[in-house]
Each structure stands twice: as structure tokens, then as C-alpha cells.
Write a protein that binds this DNA or RNA. Structure first.
Lengths: 230, 230, 230, 230
DNA sequence: AATGAATGAGGGTTCATTCAT
DNA sequence: AATGAATGAACCCTCATTCAT
């Protein structure tokens, strides 16, 4: 048994090494421009070995994407579990998304890239199905939080939870894409700090979704906080 | 003279035909996955002929992108010139962007695609420069409108025009990407109509930027309009 | 009649212009690397027009080579006619060859290039035949001079005129090739002036072919010349 | 270990096979007119395989040239080491060059071809540098021998070793080119045996460079030899 | 399990030549 | 006579994948 287990572990370890190499190369060049040769070299393995662990280049890419999706899900799960109220959950999930964007930019870009319908035609249906299912898990999770926020009276009950989730997400997403591609342009030409703008914009949007009472309570606590600070 | 003119026209016409063919192929497969053979076949011309009109595949791609950028600029220019107030300009430009998204979806996707840093590595610096310069023209135009809106008292003067432009644009953009990729998913699972959500979300955002007076006047006129309709 | 003649002249003139252009391009890049487009552009004519005057790229190349061969023949003919003795003829022809090398280096190289058997396979048999016939005319001429030199007692009658011609020619030729490719190398590393070496070497070789009497007479006249100079 | 060595040998062997195929094709058609397809076919391998062993067509060509240069150098080295006096070295090196010309005619032609300035433009600078450095090694070697011949009193000390080397080499070279291209012409039309002419011409030239004493000693030994023979 | 040699199907681009105008 | 648009056959090189060892 022990031998078999060790072999199992070693195999898993080798798989991870290959994934690390592939991830590095894919991040740099994207799916098409990356070659199996490069990945093999980065993994310090022969090209043939890659095919023992992954059945194609695309399969490798999918495995890397899966890593990223798991990473995002973990961040979200952690945010949710650490928060002490539905409102806090929403905020922390938002922060988690921004963390993902900032600290795993390459995955953020990979996901963006993958969204393009052009891309879909170059990829097997299996891969598409897997990715979409993952994606929907995340959306279901986010919408679930908002729903709880409404049900527990934190957010206005005239709002649709799915719509709120989409608006909050898309608001962040849209600004992140801008930040990823034009951070310097806006800073230099218009003195705009996109990073702060994301925070600000998201908080404003969230407040407009809160019930009257919650908003007032929050304003009060902010005032107190500010007084304490000063 | 007539002969030369006709030849000129025919040549231009042939160029357009090639562009049409290339556009079709690029829309379907993207830059890398499209081949000159496919484009030549779509254009019903020999591959060599393509090179009489465009010096490389990339050049062809750039020409297609340029078409799209001109299209977007024209839509924006038309929107601006037809509007009768800065506020109306902002709204009409927003509508123009949504029109572009709805009626020229493939160009919208192409631009998205082009933004990816991975993509930049596969494209000449010349091409990047041209596209970025176009892009900045558009941003300058949009920010200009908002600035006028503030200067003429329609929008709150405590706001930064560039920040407003970015927020409005990114808000629409984020939702459009969602709509482009998950329209059906949200409609079927949560009954959300993304198209309406874009309108709604944009109008809300815009209102939060207006000065008190303007917002009230608008609310009044809306009431009147609604009464007239009913 | 006058009209036809003028047309004839114009046509000839146009042909010359094309040849000038082709020559320039061929000199720079050689047969294979030169394109009809380049030649057409250099001639400020359309590509199609080239084919009205020459039936192929190769044909054009042949015409340029012919020019060069005529040039060399003219130089030789002039040298021969201006000389006042067989010995002087030989010397002047040698000088003419060196003049050709120095002032029409590109033709010298073209001929060299053309000699390569590899090259022959890429060229029509017609072309080969024409060039070889020209080449033999020149050899016949040179050998003829030497023969006269022997017959009239200037050169040793135990020598074979063809052998002498070959030795003189090849001696110059071998040094010229060296000079063409390694002039700098030998000057910088060994202080050798290849140009002077050609003169010296040729004169030595020629003297070794002279009859005793002629050599003494020449030595005497050189002494006198040197005394006059000093 | 044995396995690795065998693989190493096999790989080397395969490389040689490819080189043999390439050599054959290059000899026939030259660099430009030879295609990788032809070489692959001659090697009975796929085109892709060629690129596992050589990074480009030019690299393959360079490898073939290198073979030739090594061959010539080996011949020269052997000639030098087998000779028992500087004078004998010079003679044996001359013979080695003639052997190279006779037995490796295609390499002789390849080197000629490579000298053409036109050719240089079609070849990478790296390649040029490598070939020139090889070429200079040979020249240095040849000049070195002559220098020793002078220093040890075999050759006249009023002569420059580099000049002598150039004259001897170029004399042979010029006649070889003639022989390569017009052997038949001269034999049939003028009864000249170019092969013997090279020997004779080279020996004459060498004698004119010897010191008086050496020349007399040689003449004497020749007389004796001839008497013994008769 | 791991290797890495071998494959072969393209991919973008070039260019001599033709031909309708 | 002159044009120049169009062709199509190559050419060099790449790379995902396979397979014998």
C-alpha cells in the first residue's frame, strides 16, 4: 500500500510541476502562441512526458484555467465564511474579487480571454462545458449571498438579487478591464487613480442597494470611526 | 480621365471586397486561427492577390479593426451632433455605444480581444500605436462631453469628468460583456433581462451624477411625459 | 520611312533604359535575388513592359552579360589596335584586362559568377551557348596576339601560344579574385599591395616568355628611362 | 552508459546522413536553388526532421562548407607534416591543393561560389565570420611555411612571404578555374593539357623564388634522377 | 514512467509570368 | 505600346502529436 501511495503522490507532484510550467508559459504567451516545447522546457521534462499527464495542449490549458477558477472560488468561500453579516459578505466578496484581480492578474486575463466567442471555436466542447459549469457555480454563490442580504433586511426588497449581483460584478469588472489596459493613460492624462475609483464606485453602488435603515446606521458608524481616528 | 477614375474605383472596390472577406473570417476565428488561404477563398481570389492590397495578414487585420473604430467614432460623432444639450449628448453617446454593441457585436468582440496584453505580443508596435491613438481619441471625446456637462451645470461640479466617463463607460462595458456571454444563462435561470438592465443601470448612474436642480426638472418632465402617454 | 525609323530608335532607346535598370539591380543582388519588380521600378516602367522587350528574367540577365562581354572585347580591340608591336599588344591587352577589372568590377564579378557549373543548371542552354561562343572569341583573339609575338620573334619559339595566353590570363585572374575579396585582409595583416603585385607578377611572367634578345633590349631601354627620370 | 553512447552515435550518424544528402543537393544546385524538400527527400527523411539537426537551410549549408574547409585543412596539415624540408612543404602543399581540386571539385566550386560579394548578401554575418576566420587560418598557415622557407635559406630573402604565398596560390587557382570550366575547349582547340600546365607553371614560379644555391642543387639532383631513369 | 526523434500538415509570404484593357 | 492586376506554384519554417525504445 505504502509504495502505491507514494507513487500516487509522486505522480500528483509531477502533474503539478507540469502545470506550474504550463501556467508560466500560458500566462506569458496565451494558448496559441505557447508551444509544447516551451512548456516541456520550462518543466524540465521531455515533450512526450507532457502527454502522459495531459492528453493535449488544450487539456493542459484547461487544467491551468481550473486552477484559477478554484483559486477564485477559494477566495470567495473564505470571504464568505469570514464575514459576520450578509452585508459584510457582499463587501468581502467584492474585496476578494479585487484581490484576485490584483494578485492573480494573469488568471483574470486568462478568464477574460476565454470568454471570447472566437476562442470557443478553437476549444473542445468538453472544455467549454467544464468552464461554464464552474462559472455558474460562482454566480450562484454570489447571487445567493445577495439574496440573503435582501431576505435579512440589509438590502432593499424591491431589488432583484440576480440583477444586483450582475451590476456589482460588472461594475467592478468593467473598471478592472480599464485598469488592466489603461491605468497609466488615465493617471498621466487625467490624474485618475483607477484603483481607488473601483473601491469608491463599488461602495456607492452597494449603498444605493441598501435599505434606508442600514444606510443610516452605517453612516453613523462611519462618523464615529472618523471621529475616533481624528 | 474617366478611365483612370473607373480603375481607381474598381481598385477601391476590390479592396473593400477583400476586407469584407477578411472581416468575415476574422470575426469567426480571430487573428491567429484565420489563414490567408481562408480569406483568399472567401474573397474568391488567389492568395497572392491579397498581398497586392495588404502587405501582411496583420495589415489586413488592422484594416478591419480600423473599419470598426471608424464605425464607432461615426456613431459617437453623430450622437453628439444630434443632441441638443450636454446631458442629451451623454445619453445619446451611451445609446450609440449600445447600438454599436448590438449591431456590430463582432467589432465589439474584436476590440475586446485586442485589449488583451497577450495579444499585444503578437502584433507589431505600429499596429498597437495606431489602435491606441484611435482609442484615446474616443476617450478624449467622451471626457470632453462630460466636462461640458459639468461646466454648464448639468452635472455636479464636485465630480471629476474623467472619472465620470470611466464609470459610465465601464458600467456599460461590464454589463455588455456579461450580456455577450451569458445572456441566456441569466434569462433562463434568474429571469433577468440584461438588455434592460444596461439601460436602467446607466440611467441610474447618470442621475447620481446630475445636479439637484436638473434631476428635479427631469423627474418633473418624466411625470408629465408619463401622464401624457397614459 | 522617317516615322518607322524614329520608332525603331525609340524602341532601341527604351530597351537600353531597361538594360540600364536591370544592370543596376543585377549588379547589386545577382540573378536570383533580383526581382522583376525591382527592375521595373528602377526602369520606371511597369513590370509587363519588361516582357515586351525581354522574354524572361534570364533573357535580361543574358543581355546585361552581353553588354559586359562587348565592353571587354572593345577594350581588348582598342588595346590591340593602339599597340605598335606584338609585345606592346600583349602588354596593352593585359592592361586592358586590369582596367576592366578596376573600372567594371561588377562585370568582372558577373563573369566569375557565371562560370560556376551550379549556375549553368539554372540557365537555358541557349544562354550558355551564346556566352561560351563570346568567351571563345576573346580567347582566340588573345592567343592570336601571342602567336604573332612568337612568330615575329618577340617571344620564345619553344613556347606554346595557347599555354602562354592561359598562363598570363590566369595569373592575372587569380590575383584579381584575391584582390576582389581580400584586398584589405592582405594589406592590413601583411602589408601587401595586391594591385602592384598584379602588375609586377604579370611583367615577370611576360619577361620569362621573351626571347633573350628582346629581354636585353628592354632592360637597356628601362635603364635609359630610369636615368632620364633621375 | 552503453545505451546513451549508442544513441549518441546514432544521432551523429543521422546528422552525417543529412549532411550527405544536403551536400549532394547543394553541390548540384547551390544554396538558393536547393530546397529543403529536395534535401529531405535525398535524406529519406521528413522535412521537419532536418530542422531537428540544423536550425536553417543556411546552417545546413554552413555545415557542408565546414566539412570542405576541414578537408582542405587536413590535406594541408598532412602535407606539411609529411614533408621533410620547408621547400618540400611548399611543394607538397601545392600538390595538396591540386589534390583537393581534383578529388573534391565540388568543394572547390563551393568555395569559389562563396567568395562572390553577391553571395555574401544572402548569408548571415555569423556565417561569413566563421568562413572568413577559417580562410584566414589557411592563409596564415601557408604564409608561415613560406616564411620558414626564406628564413632557412631555401627561398630568396629579398622576397616577401605573403606576396609569395599569394602568387603561388593565385597562380594555381587561376589555372584551376580555367581547367574547371574550359578543360575540353583548350584540349580540343589548342592541344593544351591544363593539368600539366598547372604543375609546370607552379614549379617554374617556385624556382624563380629559390635562392641560387638551392636551385643549382635541385637542378643537379634532377639531372641525376633523369640519368638514373634513362 | 520517461524519452526525444520523427512526422506531416499547413502557415505566411514571394515572385516570374500572363493577359485583358 | 504599355499597363498592372491577377495568378499559383513554391519556399522556408513551425509544431502538436505519436511511438519505439
Amino acid at each position: 500500500m505504502g509504495i502505491q501511495e507514494r507513487k500516487e503522490r509522486e505522480k500528483e507532484h509531477r502533474r503539478e510541476e507540469i502545470l506550474n510550467a504550463a501556467q508560466k508559459v500560458f500566462f506569458e504567451k496565451g494558448l496559441q502562441a505557447s508551444t509544447m516545447d516551451e512548456i516541456a522546457e520550462a518543466a524540465e521534462l521531455s515533450k512526450g512526458t507532457l502527454y502522459l499527464y495531459f492528453k493535449s495542449k488544450e487539456d493542459l490549458y484547461l487544467a491551468v484555467m481550473t486552477r484559477g477558477m478554484e483559486l477564485l472560488q477559494d477566495l470567495f468561500d473564505k470571504a464568505i465564511s469570514e464575514a459576520d453579516s450578509p452585508l459584510d459578505q457582499i463587501r468581502k466578496v467584492g474585496q476578494a474579487y479585487r484581490t484576485f484581480f490584483n494578485e492573480h492578474r494573469n488568471f483574470f486575463r486568462m478568464f477574460n480571454f476565454f470568454q471570447h466567442p472566437q476562442f470557443h471555436k478553437q476549444v473542445s466542447e468538453d472544455m467549454m462545458a467544464i468552464c461554464q459549469s464552474r462559472n455558474q457555480e460562482i454566480w450562484d454563490k454570489v447571487i445567493g449571498i445577495i439574496k440573503r442580504g435582501i431576505d435579512q433586511g440589509f438590502l432593499r426588497n424591491d431589488l432583484d438579487p440576480a440583477e444586483c449581483a450582475i451590476m456589482l460584478w460588472s461594475n467592478s469588472y468593467g473598471l478592472m478591464v480599464r485598469m488592466d489596459t489603461q491605468l497609466e493613460y488615465f493617471r498621466e492624462n487625467f490624474g485618475v487613480d483607477l484603483e481607488k475609483l473601483i473601491d469608491k464606485s463599488n461602495e456607492l453602488l452597494l449603498q444605493s442597494m441598501m435599505t434606508e435603515g442600514v444606510r443610516e446606521k452605517m453612516a453613523l458608524s462611519n462618523t464615529l470611526n472618523n471621529e475616533q481616528r481624528s
